[in-house]
């Protein structure tokens, strides 16, 4: 998985990789949580339907009633929890993708260009990516401030939208750190002519 080409693992590289992997694992945990939540909701809804069937209501009136009173049914705000959690999960996946060069690109026309040109492209792309991510993160911060100011929340569970922004913002900030690190690596590469980080390409 690591994109380090020549096997010399700097301590700094290892730290950045660990950080990216940690974020991706966190994203995976959130995703798994959402999967479990949806499954519980589907199961609850199915049980709720079964318990309301006339046959069941007549055969096991007490059991059916107590289970229903206990709240057996779909999770009301399932939809909202998914929508407010996804931005964090996806943002948490960004650092690893950036570090391992996972973003889709077309290299057909640059393959035969000299190594020097390709290094220049790598450097420029790294700088553009870092600048864009800092911009994205900064604007998201402003977006969070606006959601806070306007007091916006979800409909049913009244989850404050700014909190969902804040979670995604933390992950975006980590991506900023990682993409800045990549710029530094590319600068060293340009100076020394060594290849340190490989682009692994997409594998979707």
């Amino acid at each position: 998985m690591t994109g380090y080409a020549n096997g010399k693992h700097h301590a700094l590289y290892r730290a950045v990789l660990r950080l990216s992997q940690l974020m991706a694992i966190l994203g995976g945990i959130v995703l798994t949580g959402l999967i479990v939540l949806i499954c519980i909701s589907v199961a609850g809804r199915t049980m709720n339907t079964i318990l309301h069937m006339t046959v069941i209501e007549n055969s096991f009136p007490v059991l059916a009633k107590s289970l229903l009173d206990w709240g057996l049914g779909p999770i009301l705000g399932e939809y909202e929890v998914v929508e407010t959690s996804m931005p964090f999960a996806i943002m948490a996946f960004m650092p690893l993708c950036a570090l391992t060069g996972g973003h889709a690109s077309v290299d057909l026309f640059t393959l035969r260009m000299p190594a020097r040109v390709n290094r220049a492209i790598d450097l420029i792309v790294a700088v553009l990516f870092a600048v864009c991510f800092v911009l994205i993160t900064w604007r998201m911060y402003e977006g969070m401030a606006a959601k806070m100011r306007y007091n916006e929340s979800t409909t049913l569970m009244q989850i404050p939208i700014w909190k969902a922004y804040a979670a995604a913002l933390v992950a975006a900030a980590v991506t900023c750190v990682v993409s800045t690190y990549i710029v530094a690596v590319r600068l060293v590469e340009s100076a020394t002519g060594r290849v340190m980080l490989r682009n692994e390409g997409a594998d979707y």
């Binding site: 809804r45 709720n48 309301h52 229903l68 009301l76 399932e78 049913l156």
Partner: peptide
């Protein structure tokens, strides 16, 4: 309305139908 799974449009109507005994389900 007892146990009817329904989609209600707003914060207020969701509360109303919960109180009426229905099971609101959130969706666009």
């Amino acid at each position: 309305l007892n146990g009817v799974k329904l989609r209600a449009p707003s914060r207020v109507t969701n509360k109303l139908f919960s109180k009426l005994g229905a099971t609101p389900i959130g969706m666009p």
